[in-house]
Design a protein around this nucleic acid. Structure first.
Lengths: 202, 202
DNA sequence: GTCTATAGGAAGATAGAC
DNA sequence: GTCTATCTTCCTATAGAC
């Protein structure tokens, strides 16, 4: 599914790029094929020489997004020489980097994929779970080793990633925070969250 | 805007309830007036005896959601007897409770409001900023007092709320975690994140 | 691979009877 | 306040010429 992604013709890739932007900005349902065609200075009908349907376009975009995220963490996740703490830090860092470098794609990966029709929708949902599981596994190892608090793994994994994912909605490269600052603030927040004492908070 | 919300007729409130569910589940753009009418066992045209437009329905829903969130934190935020730490804990707790008790509404508050037409869209965006500022202010006080690390206030506020907001997407009351567990896990994670040491994470 | 033309349907919304 | 009927516009998608 992300292993059988074929390189497409230049034209097709151009269309995917424009569609990614449109779908991300207006939302898949609100972005029409006519909108998309206009961005590319062609007529809507011409899009159908390149892709069979709107769903096919979303699918190709979604697959590529997923691949980017997996490629980001895979070498770190597979590196058996790293401690859970270091590994998780680097994986989160990689995740942040992919989000920041591919904001439009991230919006598809987090939100717009829900518009995929079955059976693609279900397939994609499973892929997302797989991705989160990678983080959950490292957190589990860290807890076992005693460097992280005892946490509800699946829940906390989701929470960590959620805090990061929201960035895709508001980050603008022209803003006051640099990528490095964002990475530092987030990693401090999240890693301290895992390390701290269990307290009653009352 | 949230202070001039009028109680509507029973029928109108029924429509808002059904619409909140529909908009939340399928997304505003993908949920048609005909869909909504079918849920209520009436014809689409009848909806227009109650509301002037689809945008008006979204607006009434969105305003009510915003009010619920503000009502949740306002008494805590205004309580001058609380330390920043206690105040933030209780405000986050209130936020979590509102999210869990009003999942459909939360989805509107976090996502679907973007489909509001101008000038409502801008107005609503400002309201959201106001809400986040309440949290940011308390974090600033905590940092000043030395109980929280020095953090980039606006950014960290967004991150904390983001971690919580994602819950609205997946939480099901029938799941394995109780509301109390969710609150405890999240508060531990977030409050520890603010308290911990600044570290290099490398 | 792009065009014009158009099919076929679904969208938001309105008119007017009851 | 709900209905039937309908307007207008927009949608995804196809047919066939160039």
């Amino acid at each position: 599914m992300i292993n059988d992604i074929q390189p497409l013709s230049d034209r097709k890739e151009e269309i995917l790029l424009a569609a990614r932007k449109r779908f991300s900005e207006k939302g898949y349902a609100s972005a029409s094929m006519r909108d998309l065609a206009k961005d590319l200075d062609i007529k809507a009908a011409s899009l159908y020489s390149n892709f069979e349907s709107k769903d096919d376009i979303l699918w190709e975009i979604a697959r590529r997004c997923a691949r980017d995220f997996f490629v980001g963490i895979e070498p770190i996740f597979s590196d058996t020489s790293l401690s859970p703490e270091t590994k998780l830090t680097h994986m989160l860092e990689a995740h942040i980097e992919v989000v920041l470098a591919n904001q439009d794609a991230s919006t598809i990966f987090f939100d717009e994929w829900k518009h995929l029709k079955e059976p693609r929708n279900e397939q994609y949902g499973n892929l997302q779970k797989q991705y989160a599981k990678r983080f959950q596994e490292v957190i589990r190892q860290g807890t076992e080793k005693g460097v992280f608090r005892a946490v509800e793994g699946r829940f906390v994994t989701t929470s960590l990633l959620s805090a990061i994912n929201w960035i895709a909605r508001w980050y603008r490269p022209t803003g006051r925070l640099t990528i490095e600052q964002i990475k530092e603030e987030l990693l401090n927040l999240l890693m301290n969250g895992l390390r701290g004492e269990r307290s009653k908070n009352n």
